[in-house]
Design a protein around this nucleic acid. Structure first.
Lengths: 334, 334
DNA sequence: TTAGCCGATGTAACCGGTTTCAGTAACCGG
DNA sequence: CCGGTTACTGAAACCGGTTACATCGGCTAA
């Protein structure tokens, strides 16, 4: 059994209140007494129980982060940016992946019981559950998801970049365009799809984009879409994919089939993951770490400074043109 | 203020012990009473405080995982595999990245105070600190790090794959070989380096490999190594890199310089991250998720079943030959 | 009828800290 | 020499649960 505050008090010949004061570095303890306590604590190798503290102080000093998956580089980067800031603010970080979990809602609720606040990425939890948690005092920041009520949110800009991307493709001579991704699967995908569609309309194109929905945003899905298109011979001028992994899978399949990219077909992704650079994939870069870091800061404000007016951050993105959509194949050193 | 067990007890007209029994689903409560309690709990929207429970039960129901960084795909995958199993075992997961943190040891110690056990990846914590934590009852599983005392460990096989890799390169006609990575930076790198060296010796090569150390295993480091070699014109037959990111950086720089890979120089990595496939990089695949999952299971055994005999798992790896080291460039669909 | 047992429930002591409030001794100025 | 501060320290109440043990009513068997 580890020593408790009472063991230290006995050993030092003082009361537990005094030990507590010394350990918390509060004022009003005579130096001689402080020394006695510190000596006793050192002898017993005493460390205050975090649990006892938390219960007494009625706080967890911990934040949670809920994400669908960590397998793609996207969420990993967000989590990383989040952890870095949270650690700086001296809070522990609990993680929860909802991927393929049927009891996600329950798990999130359980996690909320162990945290002062949490960050929720994407559509991992229902709106109702978010509001319910918020109403019970859990501080919440939403990421990659439109604001709900007066809950804070952090998002990357999607519509403007969708427009830039569309402009770029039209400038490259693209006339028919096929969007790959399920707008119902995540708010980001929905914005990207509607962004592309409205950009096309506003830019005066007479074509409206096609939509191919996929079950999940994976390389396998992308490859399957490519295979289907190849089988029927029905290739558009450009595939605009909802994320890089789909685009990479699609691109790989096309290349295996000997299709000339970007000559015959162009392909674009979204996120700018590391592999995109090596595959020469045109994409939209998101400030993933910044997103995580911003979420951490917003959450801290909510918890520590008890801010009450909601904030909604929109972080800028950047179009990255590479060989998969450009005749003037730019080289990229480093 | 959220309702407590005493509120529910009052509302239901029973004692807190009965409420506790109902909430814990223990036996020996009459159905009528149970119903009264459940009704009261529902009316008050009562959820037992996890903190109170933890203190009373003297357990955290949480595990920690310490890793240097999450930016590379390697650790992210390990963490993911870990989280999946931990969640299945109904334990929360705390994460801590030590990257660039000077007070890493303190942070780990603080985290240990909030967990029943923790998984430590790589050389993030000193041996002394590990032993100290273990001696105070924290259950520990080491990953990607040689066993310390009787602390459990999970590692990927390095030496045999180093040998396969070396054999492959020799078969491809490589005579001079340069290893890129700092053996002192991590146990894995050390094993890979010594594996390559001893394989070369045993395979009867008259060459001993060169060693180029880098500060960190990043794309930038790899690019710098390539640039330096290009500047002096001193290129080996093959660069064997300690991980994929270094290899990718190096490969990219060589290609920009117009060097023929694998014709003039071969390049290999380690880990088989996603980008490696797109870059055609020969590498050693590690079962990253399995590593995480195995660690989670070992830890659970330590905590729940109180296993005392140490276990050391060694997971198999697989050589993946791609175009960066093979004349017979194999295509890879999917 | 009554001793003995059993199932359902309550009482109270924990778990390991923080914090309020009261008490005590030393020190102050008058 | 004395009342009033002031600076430390300790006793005890709390935080919100779990659980060992006591209690009590009803039932069975002698």
């Amino acid at each position: 059994m580890l020593p408790t505050i009472r063991d230290v008090a006995r050993q030092a010949g003082v009361s537990i209140a005094t030990v507590s004061r010394v350990m918390r570095e509060s004022e009003g303890v005579r130096d001689a007494t402080r020394l006695r306590v510190l000596t006793a604590a050192a002898e017993l190798e005493y460390t205050p129980s975090e649990l006892g503290r938390q219960l007494a102080e009625r706080r967890h000093a911990a934040n949670g982060i809920v994400f669908p998956d960590l397998s793609g580089p996207y969420y990993a980067e967000v989590v990383l940016g989040y952890e870095a800031v949270a650690a700086e603010l001296r809070r522990s970080v609990l993680i929860l992946s909802t991927h393929g979990r049927s009891d996600a809602e329950t798990a999130v609720r359980a996690m909320a019981g162990r945290c002062d606040g949490l960050v929720i990425l994407g559509r991992t939890v229902s709106d109702a559950a978010v509001l319910h948690l918020a109403s019970r005092g859990t501080k919440i920041v939403l990421v990659a998801r439109p604001p709900i009520g007066s809950v804070d949110s952090v998002n990357a800009e999607n519509r403007a970049s969708a427009r830039s991307l569309t402009e770029h493709l039209l400038a490259e001579g693209v006339r028919s365009l096929r969007f790959v991704g399920d707008p119902d699967s995540s708010p980001d995908v929905a914005e990207r799809w509607s962004g592309v569609r409205s950009a096309l309309r506003h830019l005066g194109s007479d074509h409206s984009p096609e939509l191919v929905t996929v079950d999940e945003l994976s390389e396998a899905s992308g490859a399957a879409v490519a295979a289907a298109a190849l089988a029927t011979g029905d290739l558009p001028d450009a595939f605009v994919c909802a994320n890089d992994e789909v685009a990479l899978g699609l691109l790989g399949r096309l290349k295996v089939a000997g299709v000339d990219v970007p000559g015959d077909v162009m392909v674009t992704g979204w996120d700018d993951v590391m592999a995109a650079r090596y595959a020469g994939l045109t994409t939209v870069r998101q400030p993933m770490r910044d997103i995580g870091a911003t979420a951490a800061r917003l959450l801290d404000e909510l918890i520590v400074h008890e801010r009450t007016d909601p904030r909604h951050e929109l972080l800028p993105t950047e179009l990255v043109i590479r060989s998969s959509s450009s005749s003037a194949t730019p080289k990229e050193p480093k």
